[in-house]
């Protein structure tokens, strides 16, 4: 996933180098509150997953299940926020053909959304397994792997947020 996104990020850097004006003006038209909201949701969801892994290490599978569920609910806030952000964008005349900055913005953020959707499905799977008592303090690799994937989407979003909402 990191190599894939490093390649995707190269699109951003090349487009930015060739179109400095578009990348200087572009972020000002996006809704910072949406990008910030997504970041806060992902980081808080990630925190729930840290708690879930800590809980399963003490064989508290009920607690772990509740934390995973919390992580999923907060994680679902991402696609919902994205939906309203895109609606807001379109209402303000920003779509994929508005300019190179917005083409790259849609390209990278929607790619990230796809990875987050896979992550959410993974979390639903480990939530079901945790609920069924499949994990214990001696075997929780599945839950840990899903949590690490989820945190990786966090790291990628931190970079994407900086690229499109903050950097000029």
């Amino acid at each position: 996933m990191l190599v894939e996104f490093l390649l995707l990020f190269s699109v951003y850097f090349i487009a930015r180098a060739h179109n400095p004006e578009a990348f200087l003006i572009g972020p000002g038209r996006l809704a910072t509150v949406a990008g910030t909201g997504i970041t806060l949701l992902l980081l808080t969801s990630g925190c729930c997953l840290v708690k879930a892994v800590a809980a399963i290490r003490t064989d508290a599978s009920g607690k772990a299940f509740a934390w995973i569920l919390g992580g999923i609910v907060l994680g679902c806030g991402y696609p919902i926020t994205k939906f309203f952000e895109i609606r807001w964008n379109i209402a303000h005349g920003i779509d994929g053909e508005t300019g190179i900055f917005y083409s790259v913005y849609y390209y990278l953020t929607l790619n990230h959304l796809v990875h987050v959707s896979w992550g959410l499905m993974g979390l639903m799977w480990v939530a079901a397994r945790t609920g069924l008592g499949s994990y214990s303090s001696t075997d929780y690799r599945g839950l840990e792997a899903a949590a690490v994937y989820w945190h990786t989407t966090d790291v990628l979003w931190l970079v994407i947020f900086s690229f499109f909402y903050v950097l000029r």
């Binding site: 910030t36 806060l40 980081l43 947020f161 909402y165 903050v166």
Partner: peptide
């Protein structure tokens, strides 16, 4: 978690 939220809000302020 709180540190991460704080740094995110600092980024939003910069934006």
């Amino acid at each position: 978690w709180l540190s991460l939220l704080g740094f995110t809000l600092a980024g939003a302020w910069l934006a």
